[in-house]
Amino acid sequence: MRRLDIVKEHLKPGEVYHRRDLMEWSTSVDRHLQELVKEGTLEKLSGGLYYVPSQSVFGKVPAEEQKLVKAFLKDHRFVILSPNDYNALGVGTTQLYNERRVYNYRRHGDFKLGNRTFRFIRKPYVPSKVTKELLLVDLVNNIKSLAEDQPMLLENIIKRTGEMSPHRLKQLARDFGNVSTRKLFDSLKS
């Protein structure tokens, strides 16, 4: 069996691979990667990052966001948010944005992975999951960048905090918020 066929045997549709992941099965990784991309078995997403496309009735399915970011960061400790997620809070945000933020411990900057661009933001604390409290704190962190009526939004945010755990909000604001966010949540009654 050829070495290239051995590499192909280990590739699973829908998975994202780092160049170093394939070194286990290949004696000439770069040559094999080049051949696999040329024949369409792999798609190059960015430097050293490859995707094995899975097929649906509509054609090739893009890589899952979580797998893509996990392979890029080489870390599972991150949270992906979009300003569109704020709309679920019911505080008056209605705009749609074409931005994905990845809060993480490793990278900072805008990176294009495949046909998607992500804004990676390095933080000293990254929650393990997205909660309404996290969305509210992130909304206050980024309120100045939104195309919404900011005074009305702040008023609605303050009303909304009454329905959430004040302790959790204040803790998240201390760990994840910027200075103005911390001040706002510290000023609220417990």
Rank of each mutant, 00 (worst) to 15 (best):
I6E: 05
L22K: 09
L135R: 13
R174Q: 13
N104V: 09
V29L: 04
E15M: 10
L49I: 09
R122I: 10
V52T: 10
L11Q: 04
V91M: 00
T94H: 13
D85S: 10
T117K: 10
D5C: 04
L134T: 07
S165R: 02
K123S: 14
A147I: 01
K129C: 09
G90I: 15
V69N: 02
L33G: 05
V29G: 06
E163L: 08
S145H: 12
N142T: 08
V140Y: 03
L136W: 03
P53T: 01
N142W: 05
D149F: 00
I6V: 10
D186Q: 11
L45I: 08
E39S: 12
M23S: 14
P127S: 05
V91D: 07
A147W: 02
N142Y: 01
T94N: 12
Q150D: 09
R168K: 14
Y51D: 02
T93S: 02
R160K: 15
G40W: 05
T117G: 03
S54T: 11
R116S: 15
D75A: 03
K183P: 08
A71W: 03
E148G: 07
L68T: 04
T181K: 01
H76K: 15
R174M: 10
Q66D: 12
G14Y: 06
P53Q: 07
L68G: 01
Y97R: 07
A88W: 10
Y50I: 08
F72D: 02
L96W: 15
G162H: 14
P166Y: 03
D5P: 00
Q34V: 00
D21P: 11
L22C: 07
P62L: 00
V102W: 02
V130N: 10
L188F: 12
N156I: 04
Y50C: 06
T94C: 08
I80A: 07
D21V: 01
K123A: 02
I6F: 11
N87M: 09
R100V: 10
N142V: 00
R77W: 01
R122C: 12
D186C: 04
R106G: 05
L96E: 15
Y125L: 01
E35R: 14
K44D: 03
T93Y: 05
R182P: 05
T41W: 06
Y103N: 00
Q171F: 14
E148R: 09
S56Q: 04
E9G: 12
S26P: 07
F72E: 00
I157S: 06
L135Q: 07
R106Q: 05
